[in-house]
Design a protein around this nucleic acid. Structure first.
Ligand SMILES: [Mn+2]
Ligand SMILES: [Mn+2]
Ligand SMILES: [Zn+2]
Ligand SMILES: [Zn+2]
Lengths: 145, 145
DNA sequence: AAATAAATGAGACTTATTCTCATTTACTGT
DNA sequence: ACAGTAAATGAGAATAAGTCTCATTTATTT
């Protein structure tokens, strides 16, 4: 896992430093979207707060980190890995869990057609989109009692 | 417009106060999604900061205000009016403009089917969804030079 | 008009993120 | 391996969005 982290950094010509390795390892190990709070606690103070934010910005700059805001306004990040294809997110409004969701190809095709229309109508160049779904996880969630 | 504001408040059994009227008027007049910053400057100090946030919370509580975060992390609000049907949003990553977008009925139908599947797969009860599109407004935008 | 509960304004407070700057670390070329 | 240099880090100060407190004002009910 530490080797994966080094590889990711060198492949993007970013210098290999301890804080960067630690942050990448934590993200790789968790494997799911994670709030910055949770990430900080996984790091157990091994990386200074200021450095953590800097590292996350570095990862955004090289386009391997996705960041978004959950409905309870916490910031969530996730690594964008090569094998990790285009997907969307499902949020539990109760416990804050964030789940990766892949929607069908037909759906994405149809969405792209809609996007085409919107581009024309508003004279925009649309580069990205997001589908978010909100609700409650009914059972088997360790956080929601 | 002041009468519309009064009507909205009384219809929701919320007491009619000056700050509430002023905020509603500003939102009605602007007519589009607006950042809290912009809203504050439209109000020109007529409503205290603390009161503005309280009023916005009141409007959320009676379900006539929608709030979301734009890609530059500013908070955007919009009134939910009766005639204003289900829609989505298009964001300009350059100037921060937020535009209301209605997608086709066929698309929404298909999205609801996808949501059905996701509900089953993850044992969730999904109550809401959002489609967001990001890009650049190419011309005729007063903010993007 | 008086009584009462609710709403407001002003500013203190909280807290996520950014910034500053002195020190440390990683990379480059020898 | 080593020195030189630019980049990265840690610690904590600064910033700013949003919340909270509390004394005063206002809306609503009688
Ligand atoms: Mn994801
Ligand atoms: Mn809208
Ligand atoms: Zn849950
Ligand atoms: Zn623009």
């Amino acid at each position: 896992m530490i080797e994966d982290s080094r590889k990711i950094l060198s492949e993007h010509s970013v210098s290999i430093t301890n804080p960067r390795i630690l942050v990448l390892e934590a993200l790789l190990e968790f494997g799911n979207p994670i709030t910055i709070d949770e990430l900080q606690s996984k790091l157990k103070g091994a990386v200074a707060k200021s450095t953590l934010y800097r590292v996350l910005n570095d990862l955004k700059k090289i386009k391997i980190l996705n960041e978004f805001t959950s409905p309870d306004n916490s910031t969530v990040v996730e690594l964008i890995l090569e094998d990790h294809s285009h997907h969307h997110h499902l949020f539990c409004s109760d416990c804050g869990e964030v789940i990766d969701v892949e929607l069908s190809e037909e759906f994405e095709t149809m969405l792209n057609k809609e996007i085409e229309n919107v581009q024309k109508k508003f004279n925009f160049e649309i580069t990205d989109h997001r589908v978010e779904m909100f609700g409650l996880c009914t059972e088997e969630c360790s956080n929601c009692k």
